[in-house]
Design a protein around this nucleic acid. Structure first.
Lengths: 151, 151
DNA sequence: CGCCCGCGCCGTGGATCTGCCGGTACTTTG
DNA sequence: CAAAGTACCGGCAGATCCACGGCGCGGGCG
């Protein structure tokens, strides 16, 4: 299941995680490969599923979502479909992790205002008890894995 | 600070969040614009900071990170620099949110095994008490904002 | 009203990049 | 040793990107 990646593959992953639109010819230059060799590597990584896709990253604040929050949801019972339907419908919910522990779900939610956030929290409360924390800032700019696991 | 976006801008954002490498000519087709008009829109969104960048998304499991965890860190005091240095050094820490509430920081951490995770949790414990939850699954495939805020 | 100006969209052409092919060197396998 | 496999390179045809000038529309102003 896990692929065998050499140092060049990792260099490619680091570059493409920093700039997903990097032209393949420039990518080849940075990892000391010809454009066609770099292309073959990238295509192999894509079709092996190592590279799952490419995403534009949009600035939440600049599109009107001023509030970011982490909501933990304690979800009793095992009927998950209604919640999944809410996840589909409510695009303000950006991320959903199902975790161990008392709080079965951890959600990342964007809202335009506190009252907007309140609405979403109310909808979630229908499923179980919620625990909301506002996000002050993100000290770490987003990144993915940069090196092979060391231990 | 927040930009004025019309329906076409939002359509562009949705497309580029789904596929960041979409050729501009195909993007124009999908949002009913000529290639050059679509290009101008995208460049405007980029230079306004609405589009913060493009990222390749890599599959953590396939590159050897079998374990994903959310670690909440209760951080007494106000000396944040040492923690920020750890964030830089430890590339296993993928995301860091500073939040309200008892748990000042919420971290997303990838590890290759439980013992690897244990090492990282130990390092974090030097800063305060930690609370770790393993991630079973991500019911929601990653997405960014899809529509203008509604309320 | 008539004019000018700015804005957004469009089409074009040259530079660049992509995708595909054949060829080479090295390694693995029978 | 020969055959097959792997990874790389160079080169070419076609697609894409990008900067430019032109067009149409609406607002401001004498």
């Amino acid at each position: 299941m896990t692929e065998n990646l050499d140092a060049t593959d990792w260099a490619i992953l680091v570059e493409l995680q920093q700039d997903g639109r990097l032209p393949l010819t420039e990518l080849g230059r940075r990892v000391s490969l010809s454009a066609s060799a770099a292309t073959e590597r990238v295509k192999r990584l894509e079709s092996a599923g190592v590279i799952a896709g490419y995403r534009a990253q949009v600035d939440l604040g600049r599109v009107g979502y001023a509030v970011l929050a982490v909501i933990r949801l304690k979800y009793p019972g095992s009927k998950h479909e209604p919640l999944h339907r809410l996840l589909e419908r409510r695009t303000e919910i950006l991320e959903c992790l199902r975790t161990t522990g008392d709080d079965c779900y951890t959600l990342k939610v964007a809202a335009s205002s506190m009252s907007h956030l309140e609405q979403i929290a109310d909808e979630l409360s229908a499923f179980g008890s919620t625990n909301t924390n506002l996000v002050y800032s993100e000290p770490l700019p987003y990144r993915g894995p940069q090196t092979p696991p060391r231990s």
